[in-house]
Amino acid sequence: MTPVLQARGLVKRYGHVTALDGADFDLLPGEVLAVIGDNGAGKSSLIKVLTGAVQPDAGEIRLDGEVVRFRDPLDARRHGIETVYQDLAVAASLDIADNMFLGREIRRPGLLGSVLRLLDKKRMRAESAEHMAALKIGLRSLAVPVESLSGGQRQGVAVARAVAWATHVVVMDEPTAALGVKESGQVLDMIRRVRDRGLPVVLISHNMPHVFEIADRIHVQRLGRRVAEIKPGDYSMAEVVAIMTGALQLSDGKTVVTDQEAVKAAGVTRD
């Protein structure tokens, strides 16, 4: 199976700091891939490189097997990679349809659109309504400013927008970090629906229960590299955390204990 999005040997240095040190990445069709890692593991650098926000110093990215280079986030977006940011997702005083189509507005056909630049608000509202309904995001009205929505609904608008435009990949950076329990659950449901529509999702999260609940596979990032690619069912949460912190290492799919003390502290019982 050709990965939808693949990276090999990514390197990114900031001065003397090496954020990515030959990182690999594979996203398979139709999966939810969680990317986890300690602070400073190069998680966000990896995501920034994959979404065009920064350019790698070395390494290559392939989209559907073709080598690609993203000059900026807009370029990545043109290739069908959409990103949902933690809290920078929506313009607060604009309504839902405005936000869904921000930067990609549809104008009225004919002279009204070409000469008078008149927006086709009716069509944008109708299409927004369809996208929101497809993700089962219930809202009273599409014409209210998004600042009057709850955090979960707002994140819903951001997710719906990403899904509406993404043709290849949806990347979600900590989409539940700012949300309560119930709203997080709604966002996880949304992620499932996105996957069910066949769009692969990259989920960056600190929240292990969320990761274990939703991910098909987990990419563990450590010291600027991918140190493990695992299925949630094969390891316990404690083991995954131990891999993340370096207490456990994987070789040939087997667990190798490197730091007995740390493993004990992490509560891992397997030998």
Binding site: L88, A91, L94, D98, L102, G103
Partner: peptide, 17 residues
């Protein structure tokens, strides 16, 4: 719409292209 988005948050506006 872009003017309003810019006023709401330059970062949001930039990230939406």
């Amino acid at each position: 719409r872009h003017v309003y988005a810019l006023g709401n948050s330059p970062e949001v506006a930039r990230l939406t292209g």
